[in-house]
Design a binder for these strands. Structure first.
Lengths: 345, 345
DNA sequence: TATTAGCAGTCAAGAGGTGAGAGTGCTAAC
DNA sequence: GTTAGCACTCTCACCTCTTGACTGCTAATA
């Protein structure tokens, strides 16, 4: 019977008495199976679209499947390698890395994927560099324990090169192992520790903080959401109706609604959470299911990755994929702390 | 009569005799207009889907419209400001800038937009920096006359900081105003000019060149194409049929086919070229039209931007939008040369 | 000669009807 | 508890019919 649910998840072919008989219970008659199906329907796990339609799982049915039955599913090795590769060569900008992961997770699951960058303010600074450019701007490069933040700021052409070097060293020494938020908020309090040349050009810090604040605002105004693979929704038989598909896809552009969907999960690290049907607090997604997993650092969620699809989504595969991604992230942190220890020796 | 073509472009409502009469020629009878429409059909500018269907322009009709009649169209000021803003704050990575432009052009035109980065090899180097990071990698930053190229490379932890500074200075001095391709190919020939500390760590250059070559290859393997706004195709009444839309959207992922579409344009700078229907050398796009404009530097196309939509696309608006983008790019170059001259004084 | 009114003809699209097929639930028997 | 048999339901594909939007053609008119 369970196999029939998995069949339905794979093929969208409704669960019927004869279906179950031919594939799983050849020794029982269809009438018996009909009784069973009837019982499951009475318990609320299955429902009929119409009298002669066979049955499909209800949200409650899927919930039971997810909570009690679903097992791990082996993923395509090529996909795993690709994800692993992103984390391996992770010396890329945080935003780029997060987008790359969204792309590949969407490819792996065949559903639209949303990435939420909750803000980089909580990341721990490892190194700060301010690099003057020829265009009258400077590049801010903040290496953190989870990726590199990069942003451009206006630069005063009269500031000497050495000041940038001193400023970078000052910021690195002062704020190493502090959060970015700490740096943004408290840089004023460290004025007494600046050398004279830095005080002469302390507008540099104001400009930098200003630029970082703008970057924060920009991320905040989009809710930090990036959606990828929207088109993949159209691969589901459920979404052959364009208007129906558009209503779902449109939600992927609305930060407030995405916020509602993916917040308040109360999940622990390494866990994948699902919301099914009416559990989703958005009207246009009542026929959908969403999955979500978090990248947490010190118990705080830094970024999340979410998947939106029909209720008949491949929960097991999605859970495995998200777990793998979160696992890779955890490995990364382990590696970082190890390197930290090595440095101290 | 011309107005009726524009009406059709806007609303997809076929050109009928009574349509034309009510909107444009109230003083003529429908019978007279029917004669005219008949004549235009005989000349191949219009065609009927079926006897009672009204007429729609043929590819030849659109071609005539594009070549002879079409005027400039004022664009939404907000959109223009947004595009202008991208170019103003253009101290961003070349790839990012190109993608941002694709996004906004797609938004402005409401059609899928493709950006082709032809390769950065031809860009003129202004400044090179190699910046070691904490993760055992280094950041290559090449400021060119048209944007910043950035790439990561493996770094040897034993290389002293000063070597990176010297290497950066050496590369900048040696290759300023040379192309990136020149640097990649000829760096070997400049060994005699390197100081001893650079010769000691000349593996640094090998690694850098290797990384840049890989970046070139990566761009080449995707043909340098990035598509944005694919979903917007579904806004056209022509593409309410999902399978039909998918056939077009799928082409946007195929570098070879995109290459065929957008190459061999033989257009001069500041020009927007259109291919309509059978002019497009791709089977799945025979019912489409494509527009294309180039960013050229010294007569060489550095990047192109293309739009794909139904033949009933808003040619005038698209031409205006692409011209504006290309114009902004030209302004940028003018600005650059001006700055160059100032520097020399 | 250019224009027009009138009319018959064509076709798409939608409404409504029909039958086949795939299910079901129920009942009575095993 | 299981099963065979049967009546019932509903979708879907297919057909037909009607309506309405256009057209082309012809003959009359300015």
């Amino acid at each position: 019977m369970l196999g029939a649910v998995e069949d339905y998840i794979q093929n969208a072919s409704p669960i019927t008495s004869s279906n179950v008989k031919t594939r799983y219970c050849a020794d029982l008659s269809t009438a018996t199976l009909r009784n069973e199906l009837n019982a499951l329907e009475a318990m609320g796990y299955l429902r009929q679209i119409h009298t002669s339609s066979g049955r499909v799982p209800t949200a409650k049915g899927y919930r039971y499947f997810v909570d009690s039955i679903m097992g791990d599913v082996p993923l395509d090795k090529k996909i795993l390698d690709e994800i692993h590769g992103i984390f391996q060569n992770r010396t890329v900008y945080l935003g780029d890395m997060v987008n790359e992961i969204a792309d590949i997770v969407s490819k792996a699951t065949n559903y639209p994927t949303v990435v939420m960058l909750k803000g980089f303010e909580k990341l721990l600074i490892q190194n700060v560099k301010i690099i003057p450019l020829m265009t009258g701007q400077a590049l801010i490069l903040i290496e953190t324990n989870s990726g590199i933040i990069n942003n451009f700021m206006p630069a005063n052409a009269e500031t000497p090169m050495q000041t940038y070097v001193d400023a970078s060293n000052f910021l690195t020494t002062t704020f190493k192992e502090h959060t970015v938020a700490d740096m943004i908020q408290n840089i004023e309090n460290y004025r007494t520790q600046m050398g004279q040349d830095l005080l002469d050009f302390s507008g540099l810090f104001d400009t930098m903080i200003d630029s970082l604040k703008k970057l924060c605002d920009k991320i905040a105004s989009s809710g930090g959401f990036t959606a990828r693979g929207q088109l993949r929704l159209l691969n589901s038989p459920e979404y052959q109706d364009l208007d129906k598909a558009k209503r779902v896809i449109d939600v992927l552009d609305k930060p407030e609604e995405l916020g509602q969907i993916f917040e308040n999960k109360n999940i622990s690290e390494d866990e994948v959470s699902f919301k099914i049907g009416s559990e989703i607090p958005v009207v246009d997604l009542q026929e959908c299911a969403v999955a979500c997993a978090d990248y947490t650092v010190d118990g705080e969620s830094i970024a999340s990755i979410g998947i939106i699809g029909p209720q008949r989504m491949d929960y097991a595969k999605i859970a495995s994929a998200l777990k793998f991604v979160v696992g890779e992230f955890a490995n990364l942190k382990a590696l970082d702390s190890k390197r930290g220890e090595d440095d101290e020796q």
